[in-house]
Design a protein around this nucleic acid. Structure first.
Lengths: 196, 196
DNA sequence: GGTAAAGTTGACTCGTGGTCAACCCGCCGG
DNA sequence: CCGGCGGGTTGACCACGAGTCAACTTTACC
């Protein structure tokens, strides 16, 4: 089994780093998961940091794709339904049994200085997420789609961190109620969703 | 200079851990700040973890006191104004030039497992904060003060993390707009604050 | 004057990130 | 056929940070 080692390293690193934090995981644990030696690892990556950055970059693509795709699927062609379905995706994230907060927030906190590559990668991912929501907000006809996106993203962040820190399983309902109010405030022509 | 060493250790640890993260700070750095040897340190604390827990406990008291006091001061006896002033305090926190997110969130992320003492301390602090807001919400006459408190606290968390990760200085305005909407929704007899 | 709290130095263990030298194996092309 | 190279191995090694220990000094108080 040769060449896909790099990919397997990234996958193992993502799982470990997400679960236990970057600094909380020994490189040896990742290497044990993949089953290669330390020397072999350093032929694929320059450092542990390098591995983390690769894992973040890959996860970033995956997250963006997942949110865009799931929102489109659940929206069924209706841009307003698509915007509302944002928190369906968030709920799926929160309900994942492996949930440990947002990996980008986690890494930004472990590397708190704004000029650190990991912090920059996290900030970049947040910008991309805001763009996705802003795009949906624009198509839904919001008066100020950027502001709507920022408000919804702030609620998302709050939901992630609240759920992670407190473990409260009802967090999603608080976030949904907030989001619903925000969306109806920004799309005044829309009636509040029934039964929701 | 003898006996206040423990307190000076806690103060130095709080600053360092907050700025650079717990695992990102060497014990030696804290000891250098205080100007004491490693052996002396271990006569005051059992471990680096022990020091961190002490720092968290102390900061928890300080934060609770600060929020309660500032809200009361700015409220000027009016419970509704007091509730609204919550995000004045949040703004002060976000505008601190040393701001690096919420230390309890940071530590909960560095120690992600729910049974870890640091994580428990963080969760406890969040509960206390929710209680403070719920108390203000009750006195302001909210129909569902607990729910209102949870929504406002989720916005707070979102504001902290968004500001920290993205560095966006406009975060407070997004949070304020959200909070204002939430408060007026929960206190329907109240007119929206003018000019705010 | 003896005890105890608080501090010192210096040497030590252990785990982890990271480096290096030397070697093995399979495959592909001149 | 043989050389090179990509991918892998082992094992030794360094630096640094947490934590321990022994031996000693200083201050203060009964």
């Amino acid at each position: 089994m040769p060449a896909d080692t790099r990919q397997r390293l990234v996958a193992a690193a993502t799982k470990r780093f997400y679960r236990d934090g970057f600094r909380g995981v020994g490189l040896d644990q990742v290497l044990a998961d993949v089953g290669i030696s330390k020397t072999a690892f350093y032929k694929h990556f320059e450092s542990k940091d390098d591995l983390m950055l690769a894992a973040l970059a890959e996860h970033d693509l995956w997250v963006q794709d997942t949110f865009r795709r799931m929102m489109r699927e659940r929206g069924g062609g209706d841009p307003i339904a698509e915007l509302r379905s944002l928190f369906d995706v968030v709920e799926a994230v929160l309900d994942d049994p492996e949930f440990q907060g947002c990996i980008f927030v986690n890494v930004a906190i472990e590397f708190p200085l704004p000029h650190e590559p990991a912090h920059i990668a996290a900030a970049h991912s947040k910008t991309a997420m805001e763009d996705i929501v802003a795009d949906a907000a624009t198509r839904a006809g919001a008066a100020d789609p950027r502001m709507l996106a920022r408000e919804l993203c702030l609620i998302m962040e709050g939901a992630y961190v609240t759920r992670h820190v407190t473990g409260n399983r009802g967090t999603i309902h608080i976030a949904r109620q907030l989001a619903e109010r925000v969306i109806t405030a920004h799309l005044p022509q829309v009636f509040p969703r029934s039964g929701g």
